[in-house]
């Protein structure tokens, strides 16, 4: 089953909408709550990343019986140094963003740790594509 959500850069009030909707569907499917938790954490972080860093983005969700595939495509500045961004504690978030409780710098490593398969493609000044796969078993 496929869903698509669009995300606007800077709209923190809507951040978490996609993860809440996906969570609801997974609960209705009776997916194990520990797996749902991983999906929600990974998706929420990725969703907030688009809001905090990109201009806009699209989230494609594909739920199958074996697992969930999430693809987050954004138009934005891209990530110049992926290795650094994948380091725990590193953050480029502004002070205003941090004040709202976002941007503690745990984003990408946290997403990776909650995924079964995780890839990141980024082009500086163009955007980033994040692929997250989490198996149900």
């Amino acid at each position: 089953m496929k869903f698509q959500y669009s995300v606007e850069g800077g709209d923190f009030t809507m951040a978490g909408h996609a993860s809440s909707q996906v969570k609801k569907s997974l609960k209705q499917l009776g997916i194990d709550s520990s797996i749902i938790k991983r999906v929600v954490v990974a998706l929420y972080e990725a969703e907030v990343n688009i809001v905090a860093h990109a201009y806009r983005g699209v989230i494609d969700v594909d739920i199958e019986s074996a697992g969930i595939k999430l693809k987050l495509t954004d138009e934005g500045p891209g990530i110049p140094d992926i290795e650094k961004a994948m380091t725990k504690g590193f953050s480029t978030a502004s002070a205003a963003v941090r004040e709202m409780g976002f941007g503690a710098g745990m984003g990408l490593p946290n997403i990776r740790d909650n995924s079964d398969r995780f890839t990141i493609d980024t082009v500086v000044n163009k955007g980033t594509v994040l692929s997250i796969e989490i198996d149900f078993k």
Partner: peptide, 11 residues
Amino acid sequence: VKYDRDIEVAL
């Protein structure tokens, strides 16, 4: 459980 215990059916 909203639809079915079998995930294929539920989906």
